[in-house]
């Protein structure tokens, strides 16, 4: 048993070595980790309540009291930024999780059962892909309403088609490989075949897709909030902050530019990590699978 663990461990360490071989990936991982820590510690380190309005200190420039100034309602920008990171991360992770679970289940069913199930799932999928993701999310918001939980689920659902399609293609290609035929000819039952031989070989593209999707989901959430159909006030969200900043662009441009910059940094970092994961898991590059 000890030796087996050894090999597993070696696989993981090889993965990390491949992934962190590039400096930029290390930097981006550090940035994301810092943002996560800040988001968790937000209640402790934020100097003010993010929703507390202060009519005596409206639209202030940065000062010792308010490090990044205050907005039009006198709310502390730094505190709102910190709390906003919570929203972004939570929405990103939940949405990707929802999309991955629903999408890969649907994709697997389509590939495994084929026939009518496949046709129904894939046609619906195609239909969903025809509606721009933002428009789809907006339509769902119009029905279910906003809020962190709803937005997360809605963004998840609107990215389901991508997962379903990828998973279907992946399962279909794995099923055709000789080792699956070989396993079947050994007398494996279909359930065992699916879980022992097919699924484990479908996982890496799924993981790659998940890591690459977190960033774009966060971007979508910010977009919806910016339009005013996402996270509703008074919850602090970076998208909402940009939108509020736009109104006072003339007086205090930093109000809109800073949260936008935060979104960009977080998304760029996440996407770079996603690319790192892809390169590390890419069978072409490793030439193993």
């Amino acid at each position: 048993m000890a030796k087996e663990k050894n090999y597993r461990y070696e696989g993981i360490s090889r993965f990390f070595r491949a992934m962190f071989g590039r400096k930029i990936v290390i930097i981006c991982t550090a940035i994301v980790l810092i943002i996560i820590v800040l988001a968790i510690l937000a209640p402790v380190i934020a100097p003010y309540d993010p929703a507390a309005t202060d009519y005596y200190h409206m639209s202030q420039k940065p000062s010792m009291e308010h490090l990044l100034g205050t907005d039009a309602l006198g709310r502390d920008v730094l505190s709102r930024l910190l709390y906003g990171s919570q929203v972004s991360l939570i929405v990103g992770v939940i949405a990707v999780f929802v999309a991955c679970v629903i999408g890969s289940l649907l994709g697997m069913c389509a590939a495994y059962f084929g026939g009518v199930v496949d046709v129904v799932i894939m046609r619906t999928n195609e239909a969903l892909r025809c509606v721009p993701a933002v428009v789809l999310a907006m339509a769902l918001v119009s029905v279910f309403g906003g809020g962190v939980r709803n937005i997360a689920i809605i963004l998840g659902i609107s990215t389901v088609p991508g997962y379903a399609q990828m998973m279907r293609a992946q399962v279909l290609s794995v099923v055709r490989r000789d080792y699956v035929t070989a396993a079947r000819l050994q007398g494996n039952s279909s359930i065992r075949l699916l879980f022992k031989h097919i699924l484990p070989n479908c996982l890496s593209p799924l993981i790659v897709m998940m890591t690459q999707q977190v960033g774009s989901t966060i971007l979508s959430e910010a977009g919806l909030s910016f339009l005013g159909v996402g996270i509703s006030v008074p919850t602090a969200s970076w998208g909402t902050m940009v939108s509020e900043g736009k109104a006072v662009l003339l007086e205090n441009p930093m109000l809109g530019l800073i949260p936008g910059f935060c979104i960009a940094v977080l998304v760029i970092s996440l996407n770079t990590i996603g690319d790192g994961v892809r390169d590390a898991l890419d069978p072409h590059l490793r030439g193993e699978i």
Partner: peptide, 22 residues
């Protein structure tokens, strides 16, 4: 290209607006 596809579109808009209009 990598950076541009990560930037929120609305933010690019505001940025442009800040420079060229404001």
């Amino acid at each position: 290209a990598n950076a541009c596809s990560c930037l929120p579109q609305f933010w690019i808009g505001i940025f442009l607006m800040y420079i060229f209009s404001v």
